[in-house]
Design a protein around this nucleic acid. Sequence first.
DNA 1: CTGAAAGCGCTTACAG
DNA 2: CTGAAAGCGCTTACAG
Lengths: 315, 315
Amino acid sequence: MSQSAVSLVMSGKSGGRISASTAEHIREVAHSLGYSPNLAARALRTGSSGLLGLVVLDASHPFYGQMLSAADDAAASRDLSLSMIQTRGHAATWEQRLADQLSSGHLAGAIVCGERLADASPLRAWADRLVFVEVPEPGMRSVVLATAAATDAAVAHLAAAGCTEVAYLAADYPSAVFAGRFADCVAAADRHGVALRADPAWRATFDVETATAVAGRMLDAGVRAVVCDDDLLALALHRAAAGRGVRVPEDLEIVGVGDLDAARLVSPELTTVRLPAAEIAAAAVDLVADALAGHETASVRTVATPLVLRGTTTG
Amino acid sequence: MSQSAVSLVMSGKSGGRISASTAEHIREVAHSLGYSPNLAARALRTGSSGLLGLVVLDASHPFYGQMLSAADDAAASRDLSLSMIQTRGHAATWEQRLADQLSSGHLAGAIVCGERLADASPLRAWADRLVFVEVPEPGMRSVVLATAAATDAAVAHLAAAGCTEVAYLAADYPSAVFAGRFADCVAAADRHGVALRADPAWRATFDVETATAVAGRMLDAGVRAVVCDDDLLALALHRAAAGRGVRVPEDLEIVGVGDLDAARLVSPELTTVRLPAAEIAAAAVDLVADALAGHETASVRTVATPLVLRGTTTG
DNA sequence: CTGAAAGCGCTTACAG
DNA sequence: CTGAAAGCGCTTACAG
């Protein structure tokens, strides 16, 4: 067998040029010898590593865990691999690090979740290999989530149940996604004639104890209905209420975002905006695979995020 | 500047051979040109990719999300990157896939969580680049968790509170880690004179609805104290109990494994065996980094896993 | 420090 | 189909 024939078969480009029986023979021998092509050499020669970066706030957050898991499944079906990049604690440096990994050829492309590019971001040079999730970047491929509509529905539901005031429990991270969710809620409150109560002190990280303490301060302030940036925050508020004997939903209504498993594990179960991780991840991998193939497909996908009404709201 | 000098500086091997001022100048120019070395070429030449595989059951499980997050932090501080491999649904193929990634040079080494090698596993040829977590592999580097002692403490605690019978809610996955946890509980029950009640039907996946349904069957069977393979299962039992008005811990005592965030989000909070993900991940990355460097260090690390008593047990 | 060179293991035209 | 060849961008002895 010639080196050329083997290379053609192993890289799956033998169609029409190598007979089926020869190709099969090559594959058999390769398998029996335990041979698999050196990926570094292939990457060097072809200029593409087949590795996708997935930029997330924090892989330990269950939603991003789901994204990772689903994106890995979607990538594997295209012979692509996944590499994770966390932004938590690296707000100032992740763009440069990702740009380095792109320019060094380590990554062929990347999916950026919940973050916006800085004005002079080194990533702007790589626009054609990037996909943005939830926070669309003008002119770049994006997976848009319809959370504004879901937030509107949530506020409408609270208003219909008699709430005249809604408080906001914010996530204490600089990610653009949280600024966007808050803005959506401000707009929804305005539309439905509800007063939105926000406070710089009502911001918490996802650490359970921290979030519970902040939630406790909100209860001290007498809030009766709270929209949260994230389920983890909503569940911490749920916990703080249980700790103080505040009845949910009679005395306190809670709405989260995410629909994590934990949302159904508490009692009463959490009303929340569902973020369908598998669907989002599949759309993002689709888009980045198209980008790598040089396709000029539509660059924006929209994923529905339904409001799921459960026991932490009335009506 | 010569190519050699630049290469020496960029790969951090200039110590003593290149003057500090020249090295600094090279770094400045590289930065201003936006140059970073092609990693595929470096991997091809040096034979190592700097990529670590992390084998987990399912990245969407919060515990593995924490492992991923912590391992990524630990790896980054050593200029190593992380790539995840999921075994859920690939019980028959993950070993071959990992072996392929090792032999193709894609991965320099790997951390295997909660799995045991098949007798004729292709991974046995790569023993010197592998680290096993929780399920130690004889003769290979391992991070051992002291869960047997914690399970013993849990059963002792239940026995002291008057339980004469303990039921077991098992995880419905073929991973070796769950077989091990069950065996630990059998041994503990025996030691403390408690009857262990197990049933082939008392097995569930981590899907909330499935697990709740199985937990409901256990309640139908009149169980009063349950040790679970995992917090997610324990929390589903907690949910099933709330749904039926079964009082916890008065009528039902529950013990989990993991100490996920969700364990503190429910009321009463979950008694569980804490698995310190950050510590486990750091130890595993340590071990694999040593392996890649060819060091002959002690090959087994033990991590303590304390029993955390909370509201789902009495006494 | 420099400069010229080899070689890692592929992929990909190219002539037969 | 084969065979000989170039070249991807590095790292690493080697002689100066």
